[in-house]
Design a protein around this nucleic acid. Structure first.
Lengths: 211, 211
DNA sequence: CAAGGATTCAAACGAGTGTTTTAATCACAT
DNA sequence: ATGTGATTAAAACACTCGTTTGAATCCTTG
């Protein structure tokens, strides 16, 4: 079996270590050691550590965003052709389900999901800005779609509740790359599809609450 | 006016910088510079950077946990003396409201809230374990109380939904130390008490959803 | 006032960081 | 085969990090 090329090996190793240890806790020597490439290869192929992070994120978030946008627009189109407002549950499903399903899209994908799940709470602007820039258009679409779905909800309340939703989703994304953290006295929490459905139901109830 | 003593000045500066830049992005030189003390003072008074983090967290989380435990037990006692199960909403209120109100308990408190809001998604075990160790007993109490309040809910579903709740709460805690992030086309989200009430209502709906 | 422990200070240590440099090697077109 | 540009390799760069050292200073107690 032939190894992937140098760029891919670096991206794979960086994705894993960024997700596992965080961006600033990960050294280029750790990445190049894991990828079995020379230390200078990172700066040769990507230019800098910051640019490597951006490449790691973009490699996966662009296809993921395409999927989420397609599913959102499908819900909007279907509602439009039925002459009705889209249902909040369908919109949330279109956004959340592909996000969590993406964890099973291949080796390393679960690391990526954990990485961007932490991006929102990342103190460093390098990581946060890189992520926000990529996800803002989609977030805007989701927000305006939900405003259609819940016309009686004031916009600032909707935005606040959407922040809660993003917090819950981000947390689930982070957890999915960590060992389940078994504690005595606690049951095992849900995983995979059941988890996605449960999360969608949870935030749906919260978003649709009277105000 | 007399300055606080060296230990307090270090704790205050460390709290602010840990919250702002993260534990590993914060250098002892940054802390001692802001605190206007000598570099070696940290190791003299606290022993190490890790021990300083623990001191920063414990200084505030011990009083905060005492408040939350008191409020939780008050809800439990009141339900017991009324011969009824506690209401999930009251339990959530007892846990969440003091947490967010704590942001206004003094200068620097909002930084602390942001710091422990990020603790759950922190990749570094130093930070995460230090936090989990402090909060686990309280979390256990909240979990078992909610199990009483929602006896028809299977334990693993309850735990899963409680994870969603912690995600939403953590995210709000993180955001509270950042500038509101005004974006064109988006309204201003809620702040302060209104925010706490909105969050409690949100997670309450989600927790009580049928399953 | 004098003694002695607590605290502060400047300086340095060794290890680790991202990045750059320069030469060696590879793959492919002529 | 030969030369050429792309890639890899080893080494060093300048810098920051947490920690330690040993002397200077402060403050309290006798």
């Amino acid at each position: 079996m032939s190894q992937p090329d140098t760029k891919t090996r670096i991206l794979d190793a960086a994705e894993k270590l960024f997700a596992q240890d965080g961006f600033h806790n990960t050294s280029l020597r750790g990445i190049t050691g894991l990828a079995k490439v020379n230390l200078a290869a990172v700066n040769y192929h990507f230019g800098s550590k910051d640019a490597l992070l951006q490449a790691v994120i973009e490699r996966r978030i662009i296809p993921l965003n395409r999927i989420r946008q397609q599913k959102l627009e499908a819900v909007l189109d279907q509602a439009k052709s039925a002459g009705k407002s889209p249902a909040a549950e369908n919109l949330l499903h279109a956004f959340i389900e592909p996000t969590l399903a993406f964890r099973n899209s291949g080796p390393g994908a679960v690391d990526f999901i954990a990485l961007i799940g932490r991006a929102l709470s990342e103190p460093d602007e390098t990581v946060r800005n890189c992520f926000i820039q990529q996800v803002l258009p989609l977030f805007t679409l989701l927000f305006s779609s939900l405003a259609q779905a819940l016309p009686e909800l004031p916009a600032h309340i909707l935005l606040t509740r959407l922040q809660f939703t993003m917090g819950a989703l981000s947390h689930v994304m982070c957890l999915s790359a960590r060992p389940p953290l078994q504690l005595p006295g606690f049951p095992e929490p849900l995983v995979d599809e059941r988890l996605a459905e449960e999360l969608i139901g949870f935030v749906c109830q919260g978003l649709e609450a009277p105000c």
